[in-house]
Amino acid sequence: MEIGQAVELCLKGDQGAWNMIITTYSKMVYNIALNFTYNYDDAADIVQDIFLKLHQNLHKFDNSGNLKGWITRISKNYCIDHWRKNKKNKNMVELEDNLVVEKDDPEQFNIRKSEIQFLKNKIKLLDPELRMTLVMRDIEGMAYSEIAKNLDIPQGTVKSRINRARLKLAKIVMGGK
């Protein structure tokens, strides 16, 4: 089933179509929210709000448009708003280790695991715009063109933001080692 068709069916009240939309986009929205809030409960609330808003405004969606872009923009605005309201970051917690890493070499696995954990908790030091593009590219694996389209910015800007984010993160990691 294509997304356009899923949207149409969803508007008619088809639960299966809604399940498909949730399955396709919830991971992306959750990861964006988590990397902005650094709080599992807040991230869950934001994701729920975003999908509630999506469902209420689904009739406004033009089927020729880009649903992923629409959801990404809503997520970005929500997360940046949340970030601005909670600049003091009182609710931030160390993100837990829910990672699945190959366990071939136990020693290597532990080093890798601690590196991942370290990096995960350093992303919060990046500016929101840089963080958003980094999450979309390196965590969500989106193409530069897709990010540019979804965030409505030129591809050159996306490339430079991602490079800046990675450099900043690399310098933090190098300084922390």
């Binding site: 959750y30 994701v47 993100l95 829910n98 590196e115 590219r137 965590i139 990691v173």
Partner: peptide
């Protein structure tokens, strides 16, 4: 290293949240 680790930072949506989302309609 950062580029290689990136995809491993991906987290799964918790079960309880998925349920909440499915019941939105």
């Amino acid at each position: 290293d950062i580029i290689n680790i990136g995809p491993k930072l991906h987290e799964e949506v918790p079960f309880y949240l998925k349920n909440r989302l499915l019941y939105i309609p």
